[in-house]
Design a protein around this nucleic acid. Structure first.
Lengths: 192, 192
DNA sequence: CACATTTCTTAACCCAAGTCAAGAACGTTT
DNA sequence: AAACGTTCTTGACTTGGGTTAAGAAATGTG
């Protein structure tokens, strides 16, 4: 039940047995069916979730079009940082791309952990810092890589995405329409 | 000397007089002339800096072209998160766009603060969380806003950037060439 | 199995940004 | 003043992604 969580936490910051149990008692489980929403734009994100099994994405909706911000697999944490931290309504949706098992912690319980134990405060810092690194890398790629370069990097850097996510969602993540991703794939298949 | 720092810290997390003084004793000052580099790609980012006065940007270099990642003004912290946290060489440059006064803290001293006092650990978490929010907003804008929309938002959201940063740097920040930003401005001026 | 839905590709045309080249406006230096 | 560099704009042409429409291939469902 908590094996994957334990492994994942240990990579960031090893906790004592007592600390881990304390943490675990605050978690609830939730199962999302494929396409089920974890968060809807307009709602406040009051929980964050650890993915025990499955896959989610967060996306923005603009003029009826979806734009995929990020994909998350087992071992990752998901939530809307902005809404979770500020208490403002979220501007993004989070949904499951496969049947997915989650471990969920309430914002208030996490806040309590931070107040009670500096060890968890550090956990929160390290988690946020890692999210910064990922987010800045993504920003940089959108800024100066072509869609074709982003596609080629994705194949190398995140094979799981290529294996488990439909191409039209990948296109959206890369910042192009599905038709353009098709053309990019055609170009690559023909020219090399 | 430390007025602006005190004000800035208090907005994030008020510190006791003793805590603040402890923090302040670890800081050194540095003055950068316009165009002087604070960090060079290939170097490890061993310090982060609080901007007392002035303005910096970080940028990437690709095929001889500069791509501006972000601009920072007085009251902000600058550094390369990725390099600072992982100890790996940076892939970005940080330079001053005006004559700039900095307060600098060493990575090892900050680490020491984290270890000694949970209060600073919280400061680090809050700082990182705020960087996440900013970075994700920027990613989202690059993903689904047109360059024209990004330009219009910049005028509203960050007037300081429009006032103090040359247009060709703004173009780069928006993800277009200077010629394209000129055309965007022409389109908007010709009313459409 | 047949049917529907989702996923992916292709084609024709349009448009905005890139590229290359030139020059104007402005500030700084000599 | 003249010479220079920086900043910004404009024009002609190219390129690649968006749009629309259609259909093919794969997957799911009764």
């Amino acid at each position: 039940m908590f094996d994957r969580l334990k492994t994942s936490l240990d990579q960031l910051l090893p906790l004592s047995r007592e600390e881990f149990i304390h943490f675990a008692t605050l978690l609830t489980t939730r199962r999302l069916a494929k396409h089920e929403l974890f968060l809807r734009a307009g709602e406040v994100c009051t929980h964050i979730a650890f993915i025990n099994q499955g896959c989610l994405r967060y996306y923005y909706l603009k003029d009826g079009n979806e734009f995929n911000g990020q994909f998350f697999f087992e071992g990752a944490w998901v939530g809307d940082y902005h809404s979770f931290l500020t208490g403002q309504p979220s501007v993004q949706y989070i949904d499951a791309l496969e049947d997915t098992d989650l471990l969920i912690i309430k914002r208030t319980d996490l806040q309590m952990l931070y107040d009670e134990h500096p060890r968890f405060e550090r956990f929160g810092r390290l988690l946020a810092e890692n999210v910064v690194i990922g987010s800045q890398r993504r920003t940089a790629s959108l800024l100066f890589d072509t869609p074709e370069e982003r596609y080629l990097k994705l194949i190398v850097d995140r094979p799981k995405v290529m294996e488990r996510i439909p191409l039209h969602h990948i296109a959206s993540y890369l910042g192009v329409k599905p038709e353009s991703l098709s053309r990019i794939r055609k170009r690559l298949a023909d020219n090399r």
